[in-house]
Design a protein around this nucleic acid. Structure first.
Lengths: 296, 296
DNA sequence: TAAAAATACTCCATAGGTATTTTAT
DNA sequence: ATAAAATACCTATGGAGTATTTTTA
C-alpha cells in the first residue's frame, strides 16, 4: 500500500465516479481503476461496489475513507510542523542558569519566549553550578547554559559573551554605608564576607576574593553558601556583607541594601551552547541575548 | 511523499546506520540514501545529521519519526479492521421490529449479538409499523426489519420467513375462559376486541379479523391501539379481549391470561433486508434467524 | 444505446541495483 | 586506513497513458 492508493481512494470515495476522480487526481481513468484493484487486492476486501452506472462504497470502504482522511491530514499537519521545527518555532529547549543569573535573566527570558516563541516548550533550571552546567551541555541534557565564564577556556562548546556587569555590595539595612551613593570596597575590609562556594564549584568565589585583593585586603572571615537567594538572606540576617553582580539586585529582600562600588569591579556573563544544537535552541539563544542586552 | 519513504525513514531512525537499515528494508544502501534525500527535499527540512561515522536525527527528524510510526501503526490497525468489517464482525447495524416482535425477538437478538458479535454496534428499534419498516430498509435508513408479511409481495427487497406461530387469546384474569387449556375463538364472539390499527398501518388488524371470520363471526366492537404493550394493558383493564401471536406472551402483565386457541390460526414472521446490505447486516440477519429458531 | 468501468497493450519514468568515489575518523 | 555515506550510471519493473471492449440501466 502506498499513499497514492489512499489519495486516489479518497478522491474516488468523494466523487463516486472514476472519470471525475481521475481528473481531479490528474490521472487517466484506467490508472485509477488499477489502483483501486491493487488496493482491494492488498487489503483483501472489496471497498467499492461498482457497475457502469453506480459507484458506492462498501462498509469497509467507508471505514477506509475515514482512516485514510485521518492519515493524510496527519501527514499534512506533520509537514507543516516539520517546517516549524526547522525554523526553531516548535520544539523543546532546556536552559540552565548559574545562581547569579537566576533572578534576572531567567525571568526575562521566560517572558520573551512566551511572547515570541509560543510553540517552544522551555525547560528553565536556575541556581545551578557552572562546571555541572558545562557537562550537561556537552552530554546534551541541556541545550543552553548561562554561566559566569571561569579561568580556563572551553573550546568544545560555543561560548558567546552576553554582558559585563559591575559588582555591587550587599549590606544589611543597618550598615553605616547602606543608602550611600557608593561604597569603597576597602571600607568593608573588617566585615565578615558571605560568598558562593569555594573550590571549583562556583566561579563567583574567586572573582569576589580577587576584587578584595585588588582593594588591598583579604576578608577576615568568609561564610560560604551555595544559593544566591540564601546569600542575600544571610546578609539581611546580619551575618556579614557580600559582593554580587549588579543583576542580582532584581532579588529584593527586606533588610538588605545594594550599594555600587566606588571603583567598580566587573564579572562577565556568557551563553554556552552545543555546536550542533537544534534550530529551536538557536532561537532561544537569540532571546537570551535579547534578554541581556540593556545592562541594568 | 510515499509510505515507502516513511517506512525507510523509520528503519533508518531506529538503526542509525544506512547499511543496516537498508538490509532490514531489503534495499541496497544507495536506494536508502536516495529515498532520504527525496524525503528531505520534499519536506524542505534536514531530517538526519550524517557523516560517514555518525547518523543522528535532527529535531525535525525526531518529530517525523514519531508521526511516521503513528501513521504506519494506524494503517496496520486499519488493515486489520477492514478484514473485521468485511467479515461482518465490526460495524453498525440497525434493525427495526414490528410491535409483536418487540418483546420476544428483539431481546433475544440483543443478547445473542452481545455474545457473538461484540464488535457490531446494534441499533434496535421496536414497536414500528410494517410499511414504514419496508420503506426504511429501501432507503437504507434501516439495515434489517422484522415484520409480519402482508398480503402484497415485496420483490425489491430480500424477504426470508422466520417462523410461523399460532395466535393466542389475550383475556382479562377474571374472564371465564382464563386459565383454561384452550379457548374456542367462537366463544369470544360477543366480546369487545382490542386490535392493532386498521388501514394499511399494521398487518395484524386484518389477520385478526380474518381469524374471527374463519371462526364464523365478526366482532361486535373493535378498539384500536397502536402499541402492543398498550393493547395488552387495555385487556388487563377489562376493555376487551385480543388475539396476538404466541411470542407476545413474553410480555407478562398482571391481570392478563394468554390462552391458546382450540383451532389454531397462525401468523408469519419474516426478516426483510436490502439486497446489498453489508456483511455485518448479514451476520446479524443470521442471528435473527437463530433467535427465532425454537418456536416457543 | 450511451455512459462508464474494465481490459489490453505500450511506453517511459523512476525506483532500485552495481560500481565507484568521497569523506571523516 | 577504513568504514560508511554519497555519487554515477544502468536496468527493469510497473505505473500511467491510449485504444478498445464490456457492461448495465
Amino acid at each position: 500500500m502506498e499513499l497514492r492508493h489512499l489519495r486516489s481512494f479518497v478522491a474516488l470515495a468523494e466523487e463516486k465516479h472514476f472519470g471525475r476522480a481521475a481528473a481531479r487526481l490528474h490521472l487517466a481513468q484506467p490508472a485509477l481503476s488499477q489502483q483501486l484493484r491493487q488496493l482491494e487486492r492488498e487489503v483483501g476486501v472489496r471497498l467499492v461496489d461498482r457497475s457502469t452506472r453506480r459507484v458506492e462504497l462498501t462498509d469497509a470502504g467507508r471505514l477506509l475513507q475515514q482512516r485514510a482522511l485521518d492519515v493524510l491530514a496527519d501527514l499534512d499537519r506533520t509537514t507543516d510542523d516539520l517546517a516549524e521545527v526547522a525554523a526553531g518555532r516548535l520544539g523543546r529547549v532546556s536552559v540552565g542558569f548559574v545562581g547569579t543569573a537566576t533572578y534576572d535573566v531567567l525571568p526575562r527570558l521566560a517572558r520573551l519566549a512566551r511572547e515570541r516563541l509560543p510553540g517552544v516548550r522551555l525547560d528553565l533550571r536556575g541556581e545551578l553550578l557552572a562546571p555541572g552546567l558545562l557537562d550537561a551541555v556537552r552530554e546534551r541534557s541541556l541545550d543552553l547554559a548561562v554561566v559566569r565564564p571561569g579561568a580556563e577556556p572551553v573550546d568544545d562548546l560555543e561560548v558567546t559573551p552576553l554582558r559585563t556587569e559591575p559588582f555591587v555590595a550587599v549590606l544589611p539595612a543597618g550598615h553605616p554605608s547602606a543608602g550611600r551613593e557608593a561604597v569603597d570596597l576597602a571600607a568593608l575590609a573588617e566585615e565578615s564576607l558571605v560568598t558562593h562556594p569555594s573550590g571549583h564549584r562556583s566561579a563567583m568565589h574567586e572573582r569576589v576574593l580577587a576584587a578584595c585583593r585588588a582593594a588591598g585586603f583579604s576578608p577576615r572571615e568568609v561564610l560560604e553558601v551555595s544559593e544566591t537567594a540564601t546569600l542575600v538572606v544571610f546578609v539581611a540576617a546580619g551575618m556579614g556583607v557580600a559582593l554580587v553582580p549588579a543583576s542580582v539586585q532584581a532579588l529584593r529582600v527586606d533588610g538588605v541594601a545594594y550599594v555600587p562600588l566606588a571603583r567598580p569591579e566587573t564579572v562577565e556573563l556568557a551563553l554556552v551552547s552545543h555546536p550542533d544544537a537544534g534550530p529551536a535552541a538557536a532561537q532561544v539563544a537569540a532571546l537570551v541575548r535579547a534578554a541581556t542586552e540593556p545592562v541594568p
